[in-house]
Amino acid sequence: MRLTDLPLRQPAYVDWIDWAALTPSEGQRLREFGLCEGASVEALHHGGFLGKGPIACKVGRMTIAMRRAHATAITVRTGPEMAETEKAA
């Protein structure tokens, strides 16, 4: 599931990120925000009229905002089995 489709306030984990869909500086910034495969992520708010605005989500303990174009490049997974792997890691 893409991050854009993730229901609000449902904890999930980053499955993989399509780095090629992002510019190098966007990719770097997302990495600096702590977004990487396995990071916990939760969509908090969708902004803008008619769903055109950015998305605010929680990554670790940080809240970040990104455009939908970025969120489309991020595939997430929900479910307890992923949480277990994260704990083990």
Binding site: A65, M66, A69
Partner: peptide, 9 residues
């Protein structure tokens, strides 16, 4: 360009 920003507490 995109919009990537931290939302501080």
């Amino acid at each position: 360009s995109g919009f990537l920003m931290e939302m501080p507490k």
